Simulated scan of single mutants.
Amino acid sequence: MSIQITQAQPEDAAVVATLVGELLREIMAAVSDKVFNFHQADTEARAAAWLRDGCYSVLLARAGDVPIGFLALYQRYALYTEGIYGTIPEFYVCPAHRSKGVGTALLEQARRLGQSRGWRRLEVTTPPLPQFDRTLVFYQREGFSISGGRKLKLELS
Protein backbone atom coordinates (compact mmCIF):
# COMPACT_ATOMS: atom_id res chain seq x y z
CA MET A 1 0.00 0.00 0.00
CA SER A 2 1.35 3.39 -0.97
CA ILE A 3 0.75 6.08 1.66
CA GLN A 4 0.84 9.77 0.79
CA ILE A 5 1.14 12.29 3.60
CA THR A 6 0.33 15.92 2.92
CA GLN A 7 -0.21 18.98 5.04
CA ALA A 8 -3.93 19.76 5.17
CA GLN A 9 -5.22 22.99 3.69
CA PRO A 10 -8.41 24.84 4.71
CA GLU A 11 -10.26 23.11 1.86
CA ASP A 12 -9.50 19.76 3.59
CA ALA A 13 -11.50 20.78 6.67
CA ALA A 14 -14.43 18.44 5.88
CA VAL A 15 -12.09 15.44 5.66
CA VAL A 16 -10.35 16.44 8.89
CA ALA A 17 -13.68 16.91 10.68
CA THR A 18 -14.93 13.51 9.51
CA LEU A 19 -11.78 11.80 10.80
CA VAL A 20 -12.04 13.67 14.12
CA GLY A 21 -15.61 12.40 14.45
CA GLU A 22 -14.44 8.82 13.86
CA LEU A 23 -11.72 9.25 16.47
CA LEU A 24 -14.08 10.65 19.10
CA ARG A 25 -16.72 7.97 18.47
CA GLU A 26 -14.07 5.28 18.87
CA ILE A 27 -12.84 6.75 22.16
CA MET A 28 -16.38 7.08 23.53
CA ALA A 29 -17.16 3.48 22.57
CA ALA A 30 -13.97 2.29 24.31
CA VAL A 31 -14.79 4.08 27.56
CA SER A 32 -18.57 3.57 27.32
CA ASP A 33 -19.22 7.24 28.03
CA LYS A 34 -20.15 10.35 26.03
CA VAL A 35 -17.08 12.37 27.02
CA PHE A 36 -17.06 14.56 23.89
CA ASN A 37 -19.57 16.66 22.02
CA PHE A 38 -19.10 16.42 18.28
CA HIS A 39 -20.84 18.44 15.62
CA GLN A 40 -19.58 17.92 12.07
CA ALA A 41 -20.35 21.43 10.78
CA ASP A 42 -18.88 23.19 13.83
CA THR A 43 -15.75 21.03 13.75
CA GLU A 44 -15.35 21.62 10.03
CA ALA A 45 -15.65 25.39 10.44
CA ARG A 46 -13.20 25.41 13.34
CA ALA A 47 -10.69 23.26 11.42
CA ALA A 48 -10.91 25.51 8.34
CA ALA A 49 -10.36 28.67 10.41
CA TRP A 50 -7.43 27.20 12.38
CA LEU A 51 -5.78 25.80 9.25
CA ARG A 52 -6.20 29.16 7.55
CA ASP A 53 -4.72 31.00 10.57
CA GLY A 54 -1.81 28.56 10.77
CA CYS A 55 -2.30 27.91 14.49
CA TYR A 56 -3.25 24.27 13.84
CA SER A 57 -1.45 21.94 11.46
CA VAL A 58 -2.81 18.65 10.19
CA LEU A 59 -0.93 15.91 8.40
CA LEU A 60 -3.31 13.82 6.28
CA ALA A 61 -2.52 10.25 5.26
CA ARG A 62 -4.16 8.92 2.12
CA ALA A 63 -4.11 5.65 0.22
CA GLY A 64 -4.78 6.92 -3.26
CA ASP A 65 -7.62 9.42 -2.86
CA VAL A 66 -8.97 7.80 0.33
CA PRO A 67 -8.17 9.52 3.64
CA ILE A 68 -6.93 6.86 6.09
CA GLY A 69 -5.61 8.90 9.00
CA PHE A 70 -4.41 12.20 10.35
CA LEU A 71 -2.20 13.78 12.97
CA ALA A 72 -2.87 17.29 14.29
CA LEU A 73 -0.24 19.57 15.83
CA TYR A 74 -0.05 22.94 17.47
CA GLN A 75 2.74 24.97 19.02
CA ARG A 76 3.02 25.58 22.77
CA TYR A 77 5.31 27.33 25.18
CA ALA A 78 6.49 26.21 28.62
CA LEU A 79 9.54 26.95 30.69
CA TYR A 80 9.90 23.31 31.73
CA THR A 81 10.47 22.28 28.10
CA GLU A 82 13.32 24.75 27.70
CA GLY A 83 11.73 26.21 24.60
CA ILE A 84 8.80 25.94 22.24
CA TYR A 85 7.34 22.52 21.60
CA GLY A 86 4.53 20.79 19.77
CA THR A 87 1.46 19.03 21.07
CA ILE A 88 -0.45 16.30 19.27
CA PRO A 89 -4.09 16.85 20.28
CA GLU A 90 -5.58 14.37 17.81
CA PHE A 91 -4.08 11.39 16.03
CA TYR A 92 -6.12 8.73 14.26
CA VAL A 93 -5.62 5.93 11.78
CA CYS A 94 -8.70 4.19 10.40
CA PRO A 95 -8.97 0.68 11.90
CA ALA A 96 -8.56 -1.12 8.55
CA HIS A 97 -5.18 0.59 8.05
CA ARG A 98 -3.64 0.09 11.48
CA SER A 99 -0.41 -1.89 11.90
CA LYS A 100 0.56 -1.04 8.32
CA GLY A 101 2.99 1.81 9.01
CA VAL A 102 0.52 4.67 8.63
CA GLY A 103 0.88 5.93 12.21
CA THR A 104 4.65 5.64 12.08
CA ALA A 105 4.74 7.58 8.80
CA LEU A 106 2.54 10.32 10.26
CA LEU A 107 4.74 10.60 13.35
CA GLU A 108 7.90 10.75 11.27
CA GLN A 109 6.44 13.64 9.27
CA ALA A 110 5.39 15.33 12.54
CA ARG A 111 8.97 15.00 13.82
CA ARG A 112 10.28 16.65 10.67
CA LEU A 113 7.74 19.45 10.86
CA GLY A 114 8.56 20.07 14.53
CA GLN A 115 12.29 20.11 13.87
CA SER A 116 11.79 22.60 11.02
CA ARG A 117 9.90 24.86 13.45
CA GLY A 118 12.59 24.62 16.13
CA TRP A 119 10.49 22.65 18.59
CA ARG A 120 12.30 21.00 21.49
CA ARG A 121 9.88 18.09 21.77
CA LEU A 122 6.48 16.63 20.92
CA GLU A 123 3.96 15.80 23.62
CA VAL A 124 0.86 13.63 23.45
CA THR A 125 -1.67 12.46 26.02
CA THR A 126 -3.29 9.06 26.10
CA PRO A 127 -5.73 8.05 28.84
CA PRO A 128 -4.23 5.84 31.58
CA LEU A 129 -6.92 3.24 30.95
CA PRO A 130 -6.51 -0.39 29.94
CA GLN A 131 -8.51 0.31 26.77
CA PHE A 132 -5.58 2.44 25.54
CA ASP A 133 -2.67 0.14 26.44
CA ARG A 134 -2.06 -0.63 22.75
CA THR A 135 -1.88 3.10 22.01
CA LEU A 136 0.63 3.61 24.82
CA VAL A 137 2.80 0.77 23.50
CA PHE A 138 2.74 2.34 20.03
CA TYR A 139 3.94 5.71 21.36
CA GLN A 140 6.67 4.09 23.43
CA ARG A 141 7.83 2.07 20.43
CA GLU A 142 8.03 5.37 18.51
CA GLY A 143 10.34 6.87 21.16
CA PHE A 144 7.91 8.66 23.48
CA SER A 145 8.45 8.28 27.22
CA ILE A 146 5.99 8.69 30.07
CA SER A 147 6.43 12.06 31.71
CA GLY A 148 3.90 11.58 34.50
CA GLY A 149 0.58 13.04 35.46
CA ARG A 150 -2.93 12.67 34.18
CA LYS A 151 -4.84 14.92 31.83
CA LEU A 152 -7.54 16.88 33.66
CA LYS A 153 -10.00 19.44 32.38
CA LEU A 154 -12.11 22.25 33.76
CA GLU A 155 -14.95 23.42 31.53
CA LEU A 156 -15.06 27.22 31.29
CA SER A 157 -18.29 27.61 29.36
Rank of each mutant, 00 (worst) to 15 (best):
R25L: 02
P67N: 12
M28V: 11
T126I: 10
L129E: 11
S99T: 07
F70H: 00
Q115G: 01
Q140G: 05
V137Q: 05
R141Q: 11
A48V: 13
V124M: 01
P89L: 05
R134E: 14
I27R: 04
A110L: 05
V93I: 09
R141Y: 00
S99E: 14
A105M: 11
T135Q: 13
G83Q: 08
M28Y: 11
R111V: 04
L23Y: 06
Q40M: 09
G143A: 02
K100M: 09
A30R: 15
I5E: 00
P130Y: 08
R98C: 06
G69A: 04
A17W: 00
F144K: 00
K100Y: 05
K34G: 09
V15A: 03
K153F: 15
L24F: 06
T135C: 09
R46M: 14
R134D: 15
I146V: 10
H39D: 15
G69S: 02
S32Q: 15
S147F: 07
L73K: 03
Q140F: 10
V58W: 01
G64D: 10
F144E: 02
P128T: 07
D42N: 12
L113D: 04
A45T: 12
P89I: 03
E142G: 10
E155M: 11
D33H: 13
R76F: 05
F144Y: 09
V66L: 11
F38Y: 14
T126C: 05
K151V: 10
V35D: 11
P89G: 08
D65E: 15
E22R: 08
Y139S: 01
D133C: 07
V58A: 00
T43Q: 02
Y92G: 00
R25S: 06
L73M: 08
T125S: 15
I146T: 07
W119F: 14
L106Y: 03
I3D: 03
C55F: 06
P10G: 11
R112K: 14
R76I: 04
R121G: 00
F132Y: 02
L113G: 01
P89D: 09
E142S: 15
Q109V: 06
V102W: 01
R46L: 13
R141A: 15
E90S: 08
F70D: 03
S99Q: 15
D42K: 09
L23D: 03
A14Q: 06
A30C: 14
A14I: 07
N37V: 13
C55W: 04
R121P: 01
F144V: 08
R25C: 03
A49G: 05
K153D: 05
V137D: 09
R117M: 12
Q40N: 10
